[in-house]
Amino acid sequence: MMTPMRYIVLVLVIILSLHYIMSFSHEEYGKATSLDRIKQSWSGPNPPYKGGIPDEYYKPSAPVDLPDRKANATFVMLVRNSDLTGILGSMKQIEDRFNRKFQYPYVFLNEEPFTDEFKKHITSLTDAPVEFGLIPNEDWVQPPHIDEERATKARQEMVDQGVIYGGAYRNMCRFNSGLFFKQELLQKYKYYWRVEPDIKIFCDVDYDPFLVMQDQDKVYGFTISLYEYPATIPTLWDTTRKFIKENPGLMAPDNAMGFISDDGGETYNRCHFWSNFEIGSLDFWRGEGYTKYFDYLDKEGGFYYERWGDAPVHSIGAALFANKSQIHFFNDIGYRHEPFQHCPQGDVHAAGRCWCNPSENFDYEWYSCLNRYDQMF
């Protein structure tokens, strides 16, 4: 028969045992999700991160039921080593919402060599192929035909006037406008999905957007459109009009001029697709029309004398050299890049199991250009 004292001792033993077990489990859980645990060296066959990690790296995937058909496509990420935290968050969402089911490859581009630390963390997130590329210096730095004194003066004037990003991002805008698709690692691909650090993907993507592009002959896909800051592109449209006049045969017959101009091309209404998200055709950018257009802009020097961004340049190029039916609004891909977001509405929101608030949606706000896109059809 158990005495009261023995009962008390037994209860204490049980409590201490449970405390030990829960403490151990909690500690192990914390280790599994902490940055310190992530920074530890991996061991075993999947894979051993010892010594240098080559730029061309393939991590064998575990057996999964992959789709029978895929497009020749890749994700493209232009990032620096210092962007690691932000791009890990973006990539994790891409994997969880889409790519764990499709396993499309990744191409990372940088003006400086990627560190082993960067490669280790990136490759731990996916079973898909990953490649790391170093941008050639001549593709990144200011070209020799630019007058540095004039460019410096222009940057300072923008800074003095409080123009957003007035003193920065010239090399990046030029590279994204006309040089990213010329990189060696991208030559084997036909389609790409551009991904930036610190984005949010709100909805499950249970179909293949790349096959939408391929099967429906699309060349450019977007989620958000808005107006460009006029102070950054004062002569972009004048330069574009000169190019059109000199190359009249390059424009597509049923183009999207109505999206970028309200008067048949006399003026630019500043509407553009927000290019931090874009799913596009690499062959389209490599084509005669856009290649000549970018080269023309590059010689004019507006990427440095003003601040021509890749968003308006890509948008104008897509609007002029593609049929309007080849530009696609990915309504079912919920997306945020500060400070704007596209949140699918109604049944689309429910079908995608989206976690964004439907009331927080930029689609038809006063600064959005989506209504102009809608009016073309």
Rank of each mutant, 00 (worst) to 15 (best):
303 F>R: 08
173 C>P: 01
315 S>F: 07
249 G>V: 02
261 S>R: 09
267 T>F: 04
304 Y>L: 06
346 G>M: 13
372 R>P: 01
122 I>E: 04
191 Y>T: 02
228 E>G: 13
292 K>Y: 03
40 Q>F: 07
40 Q>L: 14
124 S>Q: 13
102 F>D: 05
242 K>D: 12
322 A>S: 15
74 T>R: 08
167 G>L: 08
101 K>R: 11
278 E>M: 15
346 G>N: 15
60 P>F: 14
54 P>Y: 13
287 G>E: 04
236 L>G: 03
70 K>N: 07
89 G>V: 06
177 S>F: 06
200 K>E: 15
346 G>I: 12
166 G>K: 05
370 L>G: 02
101 K>S: 05
118 F>Q: 11
141 V>L: 09
96 D>L: 10
105 P>S: 14
115 T>I: 07
128 A>Q: 04
350 A>M: 08
245 K>H: 11
278 E>F: 08
61 S>R: 08
19 H>V: 03
336 R>V: 12
43 S>T: 15
214 Q>R: 15
359 S>A: 13
360 E>R: 12
76 V>F: 08
251 M>S: 10
154 A>M: 06
127 D>T: 06
193 W>R: 05
44 G>E: 10
321 F>V: 02
43 S>C: 08
366 W>L: 12
131 E>L: 09
125 L>T: 04
35 L>S: 02
204 D>F: 13
56 E>W: 04
159 V>P: 00
289 G>K: 03
120 K>F: 12
305 Y>T: 11
196 E>W: 00
92 K>V: 13
233 I>P: 00
94 I>W: 08
233 I>A: 10
